[in-house]
């Protein structure tokens, strides 16, 4: 099992309700895209799954355990099995790309290895291999503040790929990339999911990207699940209804008009060479 949410609700400390009555489950290895207008609760949903926030009501079960009944140590072990791709990757400006990628395994490495790795990177080949999948191997030793927003997002994805989690939560992982790179990055996440049986749930702003790559689409509106369907059953009317509050046109990559479902293409893990 990937995760199971039952009648989940969350009210922020300021009294705003982010989620209400969300029931959603994913089997191991499933790939789910979450779409919906801004403020629909996509990020909150992922933060709940990542055990970063506690639900106000309902039940969360992630990777066969209820995170809020675990001891501190067990919760930390659970978190090593969950990888989160953040929309704005929280990487220290002065950190080198390789250190940022290797930090994905801080939860599993012994502490002395993590500290030694600051002096001399413990796994250059491993970090380089994951960056190469995202066409970023040449920036291995650059500092993070030398990278653009899209490149930083790819570093964030490389960190999660290097972490090798069993559940990947991606919060608008490609929002700062151009369409070609966005496709590449999503492909690599999908390949990771199909290749290693990782459960993948990604919130996406571009509807076409979601429909192209994901076999299951969850529409979220005002904190509630509006629909939960395979792409072939998603109609123009459903989407217009979902985004009714936001704008007349549907959000897509580069603002291209949406063409409805085409069968997902074959994807494979890229293994370009590292020097």
């Amino acid at each position: 099992m990937g995760f199971r949410l039952q009648r989940l609700g969350l009210v922020h400390a300021n009294g705003l309700r982010a989620l209400a009555g969300v029931t959603l489950a994913a089997r191991r290895g499933e790939r789910i895209a979450v779409i919906g207008p801004s403020g629909a609760g996509k990020t909150t949903l992922l933060r709940l799954l990542g055990t970063a926030v506690r639900p106000s009501e309902g039940r969360v079960e992630v990777l066969e355990s209820n995170p809020w009944q675990l001891s501190g140590g067990a919760l930390r072990r659970l978190r090593t099995r969950i990888g989160t791709v953040h929309q704005a990757p929280p990487l220290p400006a002065r950190q080198r790309v390789i250190t940022a990628v290797l930090a994905g395994r801080l939860g599993t490495w012994p502490w002395w290895k993590s500290l030694l790795s600051l002096a001399y990177p413990a796994d250059i080949a491993g970090a380089c291999a994951q960056l190469a999948r995202l066409d970023l191997a040449d920036r291995l030793f650059d500092r993070c503040d030398r990278l653009s927003g899209g490149q930083l997002q790819r570093v964030g994805i490389a960190r999660v790929l290097y972490q090798q989690p069993e559940l990947i939560l991606a919060d608008e992982p490609v929002s700062a990339m151009d369409p070609a790179l966005a496709d590449l990055a999503i492909q690599q996440l999908i390949a990771e999911a199909t290749g290693r049986g990782v459960t993948l749930i990604a919130s996406l702003h571009a509807v076409d990207l979601a429909l192209r790559w994901f076999p299951r689409i969850v529409g979220l509106r005002a904190g509630e699940v509006a629909f939960d369907l395979p792409p072939v059953r998603i109609t123009d009317a459903l989407l217009r209804d979902l985004y009714a509050s936001e704008s007349a046109t549907l959000p897509t990559q580069g603002g291209e008009p949406l063409r409805l479902p085409q069968p997902g293409a074959e994807v494979a893990v890229r293994r370009p060479a590292c020097q």
Binding site: G50, T51, A52, R76, R77, L78, R79, T80, R81, I82, G83, T84, H86, P90, P92, A93, R94, Q95, T99, A103, G104, R105, L106, G107, T108, W111, S114, L115, L118, Q163, P165
Partner: peptide, 21 residues
């Protein structure tokens, strides 16, 4: 906070996440 999210101990999250800044 992101490093605590991958299961790092608070000390290591400090060394990797806060100290460089």
């Amino acid at each position: 906070a992101a490093l605590l999210g991958v299961g790092a101990s608070p000390a290591l999250a400090f060394v990797y996440g806060t100290l460089p800044g």
